[in-house]
Design a protein around this nucleic acid. Structure first.
Length: 551
RNA sequence: UGGGCUGUAGCCAAGCGGUAAGGCACGGGACUUUGACUCCCGCAUGCGGUGGUUCGAAUCCACCCAGCCCAGCCA
């Protein structure tokens, strides 16, 4: 549907094609394996689109697997949010929902197998000592004095670890590989550690938990994954991934392929930084519309379609990259332009009195809902003698190339009439109180028989019929530049307008509805809305040529 | 001074020995009852650098430079 790019394949698909061609695999099975220790963000969305996208393209399947091997950090709340977000993005794992914790028995079995093969041993060194023995990037490590324990002793000790006979940190199970390997991951990595912590799913059944490197490859193999797609930082782990699978009695051996994670300008993407924003109160929560989390983007008004199109456009490669946020914005505009109903709302109201319009008259004018969607139909909007227009749609002394309202100038009120400004009434402090206009009764609907040109077209709202609304405007979380993200935090990333005026139809709209406020941008109704007090978030502004001209 | 990976336009990214796709951004123009949308046009004698192989190199080879990742009982 929205997946295109005209047959150009990324390097992962090319690798899959090769595996298919030489008969290494026949049905493609991928997986999205989040650890339930935080909310998903746009970077995860890229991975989700990639994994589920490939499964779909190759008519295979994609599993959702929670990589829950560290009970100290994982929570049920995150599991639920992740499932919700993946579904919302438009993907379905069907029957294939798994948890690494479902495989704890198998992991344990394979650990004993490694011990029996003399490829794993119980180490009594503490964390500090293990670090010292590991060596450095340029110097080889040295072997642990416990590395030469007998098979029997290792088995006995490991079973007693499982039985809870030792304290946290007292012993670990390590793979026996090569303490002098230039790849740090191969210097006898820890594969099991003792944590007397209850697990969200297995309770207190286990007090030893497998490490990522051991659990992940085996989970993949158990599920029949053919291509295990992960980010670049795991490239160094691939030899270990392969080592485990080569040394245990499991048949399937998935191929791990790494790609570059997504980075976006003027925001943060790491779980740690995202958590800081939430816990330090820089934002209102994980779903704050400024957050790059899926929950935040959803509340901001981004659509699943736009995020998928964005992921597709960004591509998949191995080069470190930072994508311009303007790219993401482009894809929501592109999507919403086709579907969002057009409505009128005035963010900064300026009162306009149409002196030659009858005092108590009101008329309902027809307005098209979306000129880019023929099936969208029309609605009626009320017009009367007193209206509001946007504050910056009037300039007492017009700037060059400004073709909106000014004294003596005629503009069109969208869907309504032509009006000409006759004079301005000011407050004592010199600010504009209201402006007065005359309208041309012959211009009903926004055109005249003489076809005279009227360059400016303004959006407006009937004062008496309008509903007050709260509008939240957003700017990037971070200012442009380099440095620590906390120093780059944009204090003005949110602006709240509490006296905007909207056309009456917007008084009671259900949360999550998208609109284009004519000439202003795309907006979505926020769950904070209450009866008679709508709240809207601006998703993104329209492209604004005038803003550039006037700059 | 260890290992792994990556360098194509302002930002992404195709390209796989035959003479630099596409998107975003940007600039110009047309259209316009949204200064939106849409539509045209422009935007790398150049592919991190230097040599080499070849009739021909972003693609192959050599050397060099730059950036990212790795020393959790995190994932």
């Amino acid at each position: 549907m929205d997946d295109g790019k005209k047959g150009i394949k990324n390097f992962i698909e090319m690798a899959i094609d090769e595996d298919l061609a030489r008969g290494k695999v026949k049905q493609i099975v991928t997986r999205f394996p989040p650890e339930p220790n935080g909310y998903l963000h746009i970077g995860h969305a890229k991975s989700i689109c990639l994994n589920f996208g490939i499964a779909k393209k190759y008519q295979g399947r994609c599993h959702l697997r929670f990589d829950d091997t560290n009970p100290e950090k994982e929570e049920q709340e995150y599991i639920e949010s992740i499932e919700k977000d993946v579904h919302w993005l438009g993907f379905d794992w069907g029957e294939h929902l798994y948890y690494a914790s479902d495989y704890y028995e198998r992991f344990y079995f394979y650990a004993e197998e490694l011990i029996e093969k003399g490829l794993a041993y119980v180490d009594d060194l503490n964390a500090q000592e293990i670090r010292e023995y590991r060596g450095t990037l340029t110097a080889p490590g040295k072997v642990s004095p416990f590395r030469t324990r007998s098979l029997e002793e290792n088995l006995d000790l490991f079973r007693r670890m499982k039985a809870g006979e030792f304290k946290d940190g007292e012993k670990v199970l390590r793979a026996k590989i090569d303490m002098a390997s230039p790849n740090m991951n191969m210097r006898d990595p820890v594969i099991y550690r003792i944590k007397k912590t209850a697990h969200p799913r297995t309770g207190d059944k286990w007090c030893i938990y497998p490490m990522y490197d051991f659990a992940h490859c085996i989970s993949d193999a158990i599920e029949g994954i053919t291509h295990s797609i992960c980010t670049l930082e795991f490239e160094d782990h691939r030899p270990l991934y392969d080592w485990f699978l080569d040394n245990i009695s499991i048949e399937n051996h998935p191929r791990q392929i790494e790609f570059a994670r997504l980075n976006l300008t003027q925001t943060v993407m790491s779980k740690r930084r995202l958590l800081t924003l939430v816990s330090e109160g820089y934002v209102r929560g994980w779903d704050d519309p400024r957050m790059p989390t899926i929950a935040g983007l959803r509340r901001r008004g981004y659509t699943p379609e736009s995020i998928r199109a964005f992921a597709e456009a960004v591509g998949v490669a191995k080069a470190y990259s930072v994508v311009d946020s303007a790219m993401l914005e482009h894809f929501v505009r592109d999507d919403l332009n086709k579907r969002a109903p057009r409505v009128m709302g005035v963010l900064h109201p300026l009162k306009v009195i149409i002196d030659n319009y009858p005092q108590n008259k009101e008329e309902w004018l027809e307005a098209e809902n979306n000129p880019n969607d023929e099936d969208s139909g029309v609605r009626s909007v009320p017009f009367s003698r007193e209206i509001y227009i946007e504050d910056d749609d009037f300039m007492e002394i017009p700037a060059k190339k400004y073709f909106r309202l000014s004294p003596g100038r005629e503009v069109r009120l969208k869907h309504a009439y032509y009006i000409t400004c006759t004079h301005v009434v000011k407050n004592d402090d010199g600010t504009i109180k209201e402006i007065h206009c005359d309208y041309d009764p012959e211009s009903r609907g926004g055109w005249t028989a003489d076809e005279r040109k009227v360059r400016g077209t303004l959006h407006w709202v009937s004062a008496a019929h309008s509903v007050k609304a709260e509008i939240r405007l957003y700017e990037p979380l971070l200012r442009e530049g380099e440095g620590d993200f906390q120093e780059l935090l944009n204090e003005g990333s949110q602006t709240v307008i509490d006296d905007a005026r909207l056309e009456p139809g917007l008084g009671n709209v259900k949360p999550g509805s998208h609109f284009q406020f004519l000439r202003l941008g795309y907006f979505i109704s926020d769950p904070d809305s209450s009866d008679g007090r709508p709240v809207f978030n601006r998703i993104v502004g329209l492209k604004d040529t005038w803003a550039k001209v006037s700059r």
